[in-house]
Structure formats: C-alpha cells, structure tokens
Simulated assay, not measured.
Amino acid sequence: MANTRTPVPRDALRTLLAGNQRFVSGVPEHPNQDAERRAALAPVQHPFAVLFGCSDSRLAAEIIFDRGLGDLFVVRTAGHVAGPEVLGSIEYGVSVLDCRLVVVLGHDSCGAVAAARAALEDGPPAPGYVRDVVERVTPSVLAARAAGIDDPDGIVDEHIRNTVDLLLDRSRVLADEVAAGRAAVVGLSYRLADGSARLVAARGLEEDVLAGAAPAAPHPRTDAGLA
C-alpha cells in the first residue's frame, strides 16, 4: 500500500542527519516514543526509510538518528552483508511499505572487516557460518587494496560503497525505483567515539542535496549515478 505521507529521498536523508546531529550534540528529542505513538501504529506502519546496518550493538539506529517507533524499517547483519533474505526485506520496505530512502550504515572498527583483512593475511579461518560473513566482506577489502586504500577507515568506506552497489546490482526492484527517481540509496559511516554519521556514497540524489550532507572522505574512485 502506497504511503502518500512518505517524504521524498532528500527530505528523508535530511531528517536522519538532523536527528544524528541532535544525538551528537547531546540534545535528542526522542520523537515518536510515547504511548500515543505506540497505539497509532498498532494497525499499520509507515516508516520513511529502510536502514540496512551492521549488527554491532553500538549501532542502534533509532538512538543514533534520534527517531522512534515506526520511523525506520531496520535490517541488520554482521558487516552489513546481504543475502537473499536481506534483499527481500529491503525490497519489502521499498515496494510494500513505500520507503523512498535506503541507508547502508557501516562503522569504524568493524569486526567483520577486520576479520576479512586477517583472513587475507593468512590468519586462522573463521569458525562455522562466521566464515560466510568474512567471505562476503573480502571482496570489499580486495577492492580497497586495488584502489590503494590501506587505512582501516578507508577500507570500511569501501565496504559501504560496495554494499550500496551490490544492492542495486542484485535487486531489480530497488534499481528500477532509483532509476525512475522514486527512491535513493545512500551509504553512511558511523564513528563510534563521537556518534557522527558521515555520507560515503549516494545513488539517486541531486548534487545540491549531497553538498548539504556531512562530507564524505576523499577517495580515488568517483561515485557515479548522483543524478
């Protein structure tokens, strides 16, 4: 069911970044977290964004973006690795719940990225299904190396960019929505120490919107598809 109240992608992103600024500044408003909101949402939900983030316990989306019940459709996996269930969940958020913005949220000191780097340096293999997570992060580490990136934060940024691209490459539903100008996909990198979220990649947003967002780190690879 379409939700006519869903904000366009640029407004959804601005709402998230404004909430993050409040969180960083220590003046959160804690919107949509009362009994009235809970009761209003019982029959139906209208989230304004899909947030696909790392499962790290320090990345509680509604807290770091100062949002509340019903605001975000959250999907989380270790290292924000995407399999069929993740893609289906994101497509549900976009095609059924009418979310116009998909956010990939990574962070510094990511254990999955560190494990992939260690595996490439002949470290011990990860146990059980953790190995699947490491293997899905490894292409991002290799891509960072190929681009001459060797600092940990730069590698994390590369993994975020690669995840944004992977979602669009593998999900025809999402790619068609972005191509039609109805949705956008962005990548944000979260700093654990100060709580800030920084823009790393974007697909489907205008240049002027990106200029007003938190700046991305310099990178030798140009991000295309911002129109």
Rank of each mutant, 00 (worst) to 15 (best):
V137H: 03
R161V: 15
V178S: 01
V200K: 00
L174S: 02
A112W: 06
A126N: 06
V164D: 01
G128C: 06
R170A: 15
A143G: 01
D108R: 08
V137T: 11
E177P: 11
C110P: 06
V185G: 03
R170S: 12
A143K: 07
S140P: 07
A179V: 13
S171C: 01
V113L: 11
V102Y: 02
A193E: 12
C110Q: 10
P127E: 11
S189K: 00
H159N: 14
L142V: 10
A126Q: 06
D132C: 09
T138H: 02
A146I: 02
R170K: 13
V164Y: 00
S109N: 13
V173S: 09
A115C: 06
D151G: 03
I149A: 05
G181I: 03
R161E: 13
V102M: 04
A112V: 05
D165K: 03
G187M: 00
V178T: 11
S189L: 05
D151W: 00
A202G: 05
R198E: 13
A114T: 14
A115I: 08
R191S: 15
R170C: 14
D157L: 00
A175S: 14
L168K: 01
A184T: 08
A147P: 05
D157H: 02
A146R: 10
R117A: 09
V164C: 12
A201L: 11
S140H: 08
H107A: 06
H107D: 11
A147N: 13
L105R: 00
V133P: 09
Y129R: 12
D108I: 10
R170M: 10
V103Y: 03
T163V: 11
D176L: 04
S196K: 01
D150C: 02
V113E: 11
A119Y: 03
R172W: 00
A201Y: 09
R117Q: 15
P139C: 05
A116E: 04
G187L: 02
G154M: 08
A114Q: 14
V103Q: 02
R170Q: 14
A184R: 02
A143W: 01
G204V: 08
G123L: 07
G128R: 03
L167A: 07
L174Q: 01
G111N: 11
H159P: 07
L199I: 12
A183Q: 11
Y190D: 09
D153S: 06
L188R: 00
A202Q: 02
D151T: 08
C110V: 06
A115L: 11
S171E: 02
L205S: 03
V102C: 03
V130S: 10
V186N: 00
V164A: 05
N162P: 00
A114S: 13
R182C: 08
V156R: 06
L105C: 01
R170D: 14
A112E: 09
V104R: 00
A143C: 08
G154I: 10
R203M: 09
L192N: 07
V137R: 04
A180V: 00
E177G: 04
S196M: 11
Y129H: 15
V178D: 05
V104Q: 03
